[in-house]
Design a protein around this nucleic acid. Structure first.
Length: 468
DNA sequence: TCTGGGGTCCTAGGACCC
DNA sequence: TCTGGGGTCCTAGGACCC
């Protein structure tokens, strides 16, 4: 009798899967006719997602090479030494909030001897790569989601071994890179994210938490506040609070169709993911960017066209180099300049979009178009604070349509730029650049507390004194 | 008197993320 | 004195086509 039921079950499950795969085909062909079905993505759905997140990543990177910072309050600042963008636990306990301008808490910093670092992307980027390489070895599929986070497909791990696997991963990352990480498991990305938050917030979880068939799910979801859920920001929170949806539990049991009416497909996916239905599969090659932005605030207010020309040319050069690195070309370029929105003086914000005659990734050409845009944008008599360039409509170089308007100098310039990129990559900075980028860099951002590039520049590598 | 209907593509802006 | 930077996806509406 028992075996019969067992067999029958298997049959039922197999039949269900078959139906599912058929639905899958139908959905792909009819998605356009029934867009409301588009939340269903039945291709490659892992059963168990893990989210690995580095704890206080930038601060942890600084700590690797300065063991004396252990148990001390540490913060890392944004570009231009403007805002707090990373905090050690000790700094969090001092009440230092994420994202606030550093001058607002100068008293707290002084009084508690908080260690302050300028942002050091060269270092963080390199450490990140090491962490991600290790993670790739430990899972069949991985999606690098940000500089300090990755989703793993751990469907092959038995549920009973999840916690142990999590602890092993933590140990390995710590041992090989010195970076502490936390891990959350869940049947969807949204739930893995939530589990990760719980892994971090409770000491007794020791950095690992699973929401895969968790028997206390109801109690746990009741405690998760609506704004703690991945994908819910200020506006959505306001909407949910108005409708009386305050916790993850409330949202799980909300009327899906009503949410869909008000928040569209994004809202509906939130509900489904919380219920355990995968709407966001693992995305394994998100690397090629669709647009590339380079923008900076200036260290000092800028008034002259010449300085703006230098600064924007430098930003364009960076963007062009990123384009070449991912083997892409851009069809369109956007340039913007703005005054300091916090200052009292007259304000000016403007942008200009240039459609280029043929797609390119050559610095010279892009600078040329940016300069045209800048001359049209520029107004005398303002104190400019920030400028930036965004190249968009990006396509792979080998798929680009050639045009009869293509400059005849392309090929020659291509080899020049190749050499420039090679030299600059080797020295780790802009050793070779275009004359218009200037040399003074009077506009350059402030970075008063920059740590050395321990892992990416020869002269910054630590020396160990064997005498002690 | 009376003026279609269905579709695609593009873009700007909004919302979110780290 | 001082207030970051770099992305993605979705949607509504306009332009355009037949």
């Amino acid at each position: 009798m028992v075996t019969k039921i067992g067999k029958r079950r298997t049959y039922v499950v197999a039949g269900f899967l078959k139906v599912l795969s058929e639905i899958n085909c139908i959905i792909f062909t009819t998605k356009k006719i029934f867009p409301y079905l588009s939340y269903l993505r039945l291709d490659q759905m892992p059963d168990i997602f893990a989210l690995v997140d580095c704890n206080n990543f930038y601060v942890s990177c600084e700590k690797i090479f300065k063991p004396g910072l252990e148990n001390k309050p540490v913060v890392v600042l944004s570009n231009n030494d403007g805002c707090i963008i990373a905090r050690s636990d000790e700094s969090k306990n001092l009440g230092i909030k994420m994202g606030i301008p550093v001058f607002e808490i100068s008293q707290i910093i002084k009084k508690n001897k908080v260690h302050v670092f300028s942002t050091n992307y060269a270092l963080y980027g390199d450490i990140s790569e090491r962490v991600m390489n290790l993670l790739s070895e430990m899972a069949p599929e991985i999606e690098i989601y940000s500089i300090d986070e990755a989703f793993l497909d751990l469907s092959h791990i038995p549920q009973t071994e999840l916690n142990e696997t999590g602890r092993k991963i933590i140990e390995k990352i710590k041992m090989f890179t010195g970076i502490p990480v936390s891990i959350g498991f869940g049947p969807t990305k949204t739930l893995a994210k939530a589990a990760n938050m719980l892994a971090k917030t409770s000491k007794k979880n020791q950095g690992v938490f699973s929401l895969v068939n968790n028997p206390d799910a109801e109690k746990i979801f009741n405690k998760i506040k609506i704004n703690e859920i991945w994908g819910i920001g200020e506006k959505y929170m306001a909407f949910f609070n108005r409708t009386g949806i305050m916790s993850a539990y409330d949202l799980q049991h909300a009327n899906e169709n009503r949410i869909r009416e008000r928040l569209g497909i994004v809202g509906q996916r939130l509900v489904l993911e919380l219920r355990g239905t995968v709407c966001y599969p693992l995305n394994q090659n998100p690397d090629v960017k669709k647009e590339i932005c380079t923008s900076r605030s200036f260290g000092h207010p800028v008034t002259s066209l010449e300085e703006l020309e230098e600064a924007t040319a430098s930003y364009v050069a960076k963007a062009a180099q990123k384009l070449r690195k991912q083997k892409s070309m851009a069809n369109s370029l956007m340039l913007f300049i703005m005054t300091n929105k916090y200052a009292k003086g007259p304000q000016y914000v403007n942008y200009r979009i240039v459609k280029m005659p043929s797609p390119t990734n050559q610095t010279q050409e892009l600078i040329h178009f940016a300069q045209i845009a800048l001359k049209r944008l520029f107004r005398k008599g303002y104190y400019y604070k920030k400028a930036g360039v965004i190249v968009s409509d990006v396509a792979p170089s080998n798929q680009v349509q050639t045009s009869i308007w293509e400059p005849s100098t392309r090929e020659k310039n291509q080899s020049i730029l190749k050499a420039v990129d090679a030299i600059n990559a080797k020295t780790g900075k802009e050793q070779v650049k275009f004359a218009i980028q200037g040399n003074e860099e009077t506009w350059k951002m402030r970075q008063h507390n920059l740590s050395p590039q321990y892992t990416t520049r020869w002269r910054d590598i630590l020396e160990v004194n064997m005498d002690h």
